[in-house]
Computed example of a mutant assay.
Amino acid sequence: MYISELGRRANASPKAIRLYESLGLLGEVGRKGTYRIYSEQNVQQVQLIRQVQALGFKLADMGPLLVAAQGAPDWAELRAFIERRRVLVRAEVARLEQLERKLGQVSAEIGACLAAPQPSTMADCIDETLDSAP
């Protein structure tokens, strides 16, 4: 199949497919004259590349894992890489949840300060909330 058919089936632009090929992610691509001829395996490779990109991975990081010596992904290494990324994501989620809780506390303190019957100065509200900020 030609690049337009591959692009249609794998939901990728011809420019992206040429980039994947130039990075060596598609292995050896056959030619018929000046035209590239792609296989069913190339459709699957491009779909995998697109999926990896949609998960936020960079091709520079993932490239070596997507094409092993035989032209197939190194599934064990790919899975290990993904699991390492999941650990980082969980740590970031925990950090963001803690930040969200702290922002809620600071917002509530400002709200309480503003709703006080004896109006405090804004400096009092800010000082109190900043003292409790992370």
Rank of each mutant, 00 (worst) to 15 (best):
M1R: 03
M1C: 07
M1D: 11
Y2D: 08
L6V: 01
L6A: 02
R9F: 06
R9P: 00
R9Y: 05
R9A: 06
A12W: 01
S13H: 07
S13Y: 06
P14A: 08
K15I: 08
K15A: 10
L19S: 02
Y20E: 07
Y20V: 02
E21W: 02
E21C: 03
S22A: 10
S22M: 07
S22P: 12
S22I: 11
L23Y: 11
L23E: 06
G27K: 04
G27P: 03
E28C: 07
E28T: 13
V29R: 04
G30L: 15
K32C: 10
T34G: 06
Y35L: 10
I37V: 15
Y38W: 09
Y38T: 02
S39K: 04
E40H: 13
E40T: 12
N42M: 07
V43A: 04
Q45W: 03
V46G: 05
V46C: 01
V46T: 04
Q47D: 00
L48C: 09
L48K: 02
I49T: 01
R50L: 03
V52T: 00
A54F: 11
A54Q: 12
L55K: 06
F57L: 05
K58C: 12
A60N: 15
G63N: 05
P64E: 02
L66N: 02
V67S: 08
A69P: 00
A69F: 11
G71K: 05
G71H: 07
P73L: 08
D74I: 05
D74A: 09
W75K: 14
E77A: 08
E77I: 05
L78A: 05
A80C: 08
F81V: 08
F81L: 05
I82K: 09
E83Q: 07
E83M: 09
E83S: 09
R84G: 15
R85P: 01
L88M: 13
V89I: 15
V89Q: 04
A94I: 10
A94D: 06
A94C: 01
R95Y: 08
R95I: 06
L96F: 00
E97T: 09
E97N: 06
G104A: 10
Q105H: 10
V106E: 01
G111P: 07
G111N: 13
G111F: 13
C113S: 13
L114I: 14
L114R: 15
A116D: 11
P117E: 07
P117V: 06
P119Y: 14
T121K: 08
T121A: 11
M122Q: 12
A123H: 04
A123E: 14
D124H: 13
C125M: 10
C125R: 08
D131C: 10
P134L: 10
P134E: 13
